[in-house]
């Protein structure tokens, strides 16, 4: 009993470099040796998938890339899976970002890669609006006339020269908004666009953002929600596009388990020393 106490007591002073080392191993090993754990699908992800599936061929979807490169492992797989689902269903896609740092380059790469896969034509099947500063003004302004805020697309083409944009003037002509975001822009899409213009929308957000978005789910302002890498993996599974999110789920499983292990270990050390201190 005494030796057990000593072990737990010494745990309190465990060098954090050992923790870093174990966390590093916990991330890397499952990537090299996948566990292949079965992945369940949560209701909010399924709702978003079903809503997109219910859109008719030729519908117009606005896909946002409101995220920074720092959250790419969580958000980029959502964009890839969503875009593949949309192009597969022959849905017209308009892409836009309100993030100044790097999102334009990410959007450019994702859209061009997937458009090539599905042989989609720029201007007819999809349009990239690019970036414009000031998301509140951008979101509100697009409600009246998109061309007022984006007179030109990301490649300096006038919007009226693009066949798709000739029939899409504002949110009334958009059937669904698919938000992929790692920040508060989701709040603005909901409060400025859904509340004022009534355009239906769903969102894919980082795990940190997901708890806040549940309130928009309950009010049905968001029809569905993808939360973090798990949400991205679920969408990859639903759209039959296994990618980096599904690959990362084993690592996420082990890392969550490792953090819980450390929390339990830390508490055992805490209670062991506290018991001793109380008895003294």
């Amino acid at each position: 009993m005494n030796s057990l106490f000593k072990i737990f007591s010494s745990l309190k002073a465990l060098d954090r470099r050992y923790i870093f080392l174990l966390i590093g191993v916990a991330v890397i090993l499952p990537l090299i040796f996948p566990l292949g754990l079965p992945l369940g699908v949560t209701q909010p992800s399924l709702d978003l998938y079903n809503r997109v599936e219910s859109l008719k061929e030729g519908s117009v979807v606005l896909l946002t890339f409101d995220y920074y490169p720092s959250t790419l492992p969580e958000t980029e797989p959502m964009s890839y899976a969503a875009l593949r689902q949309l192009f597969k269903k022959n849905i017209k896609v308009i892409t836009v970002t309100t993030i100044p740092l790097g999102a334009l380059s990410v959007m450019e790469n994702v859209v061009k890669n997937v458009a090539r896969e599905y042989d989609k034509k720029y201007g007819t099947d999809y349009v990239n609006l690019g970036f414009k500063y000031g998301y509140q003004a951008v979101l509100l302004g697009m409600g009246r006339r998109i061309a007022d805020i984006f007179p030109m697309d990301a490649y300096n083409n006038k919007l009226e020269t693009l066949p798709l944009m000739q029939r899409v003037k504002n949110y009334k002509d958009i059937d669904f908004i698919f938000i992929v975001s790692d920040n508060a822009t989701v709040d603005y899409w909901v409060s400025l666009v859904n509340a004022q213009f009534g355009t239906p929308m769903g969102a894919g957000v980082t795990a940190v953002m997901a708890p806040k978005c549940y309130s928009f789910l309950q009010t049905k302002q968001l029809v569905g929600l993808l939360g973090g890498m798990k949400g991205a993996a679920e969408y990859e599974k639903l759209t039959s596009n296994p990618g980096r999110a599904m690959l990362g789920m084993d690592s996420q499983s082990v890392i969550h388990f490792a953090i819980i292990f450390f929390v339990v270990l830390g508490n055992l050390g805490y209670f062991a020393t506290r018991k001793k201190e109380v008895s003294k």
Binding site: I19, S70, A258, N267
Partner: peptide, 23 residues
């Protein structure tokens, strides 16, 4: 940028071990 963000996992684990107590 991804590296900066992913370093969080290490610090969260270390901080949780030291501070997350059932006091």
């Amino acid at each position: 940028m991804s590296t900066m963000f992913s370093i969080l996992a290490f610090f969260i684990a270390s901080a949780a071990y030291r501070a997350f107590r059932a006091r």
